[in-house]
Design a protein around this nucleic acid. Structure first.
Lengths: 195, 195
DNA sequence: CCGTTTGTTGCCAAATTTGCAAGATTGCCG
DNA sequence: CGGCAATCTTGCAAATTTGGCAACAAACGG
């Protein structure tokens, strides 16, 4: 719980301000309206600052989402070390993913944008991949070197697949299904075998 | 087996020529040397033609790989319609992935480049995602509407995860493991449950 | 209080991307 | 065969994006 220092907090604050401005503009006026110039103007900063923090608009839009994905691994680490990894995943992922995704209609809009724009898709996949890597690390830690082979990468990969699949299904389904239940079901299916 | 027509074949030929030139230059001189100008020069074409076919160098480098990934779904379709989908996956994916990946040292070089360059990583993830989508479609076809929910996406996702995990393990492992065996093992583990 | 590190910003040159149109090649139909 | 339509290839040039550099400001560590 050590404070990261004022400097880092300020940097994170500007990043968050830019990312939120980008996110807000995306929902309000569509992807075309999101540019380094417009976003930095909305956040009351210089365009050069935008490019100091982000490579492009897609990275800015998904930056907060990316950080929350990376925090999933930390939530797993907070679980009892002796707990089986599958129990940790089933306990952490459903509620956390529900919290991250927020409102269904808003998230559906995001997914539609991602589906329509190749650059947005690529950035979203990058976010998921980094999430996968961080999850693989914590799984390997938990296993304690018991599985030096493909197990951590395999398990982290299928977990991310479950998240992505469940979220997509939930967002595009109009019958109002419960995201936590869908994700829990996906994870459980994989755990017990998909035959 | 209908001929695509001379026009499409010529277009595909130029694409392949550009992609192979990009691939060759990557292995010979590294990613920095691969530019639209250098690649089109090596393929004896105009730089503008490169941009007509590809958005950037990363797309060109991985284009052939992407097409072979998309062909995986067709190989699945050629299996007996009554065959359980898991048997089809176990029969098709290991040998086909071995064929696609080719030489281990060469593929290890590619993976290292992908790991070092964010744009290459994003393009590789895009390739895998399109592969996942095409696999999900054929799985849904085979299921014949029996599983209207998350099953096709989930199964296609874990299959791609298995491929990616197995290939990475094989490429970075110096003990000379058999790729087909590793992939078969990954798929089998998922099929029977990862508990 | 001072030296060092680092985030913010403006400026501007270099590199990249894109729209447009002309020429060449192919597909199609009478 | 003849010719119209579609589209691949290419050059050119404008528009946009990217990236380096340096100055200023703020925070860190004595």
């Amino acid at each position: 719980m050590t404070q990261p220092g004022l400097r880092e907090r300020k940097k994170a604050a500007t990043r968050a301000a830019l990312s939120r401005a980008a996110w807000t503009m995306l929902l309000a006026d569509g992807l075309e309206s999101v540019t380094p110039e417009s976003v930095s103007a909305a956040a009351d900063m210089a365009p050069r600052t935008f490019r100091y923090h982000f490579r492009n608009r897609e990275e800015a839009i998904l930056d907060e989402l990316a950080q929350q994905h990376l925090a999933l691994a930390d939530r797993i680490r907070e679980r009892p070390p002796a707990e089986p990894i599958w129990d940790s995943l089933l306990a952490v992922l459903p509620p956390e993913v529900v919290r991250i995704c927020g409102d269904r209609a808003v998230f559906a809009t995001l997914l539609r944008v991602i589906g329509d724009d190749p650059a947005m898709l690529a950035q979203n996949l990058t976010v998921l991949e980094h999430s996968r890597i961080s999850l693989a690390r914590v799984i390997a830690e938990r296993a304690g070197g018991q599985h030096p082979g493909t197990y951590p990468n395999l398990l982290a990969g299928v977990a991310v697949t479950a998240i992505s699949t469940a979220v997509t299904h939930w967002a595009l389904d109009t019958t109002g299904t419960d995201l936590a239940a869908v994700l829990h079901d996906c994870l459980q299916k994989i755990r017990e075998g998909l035959s």
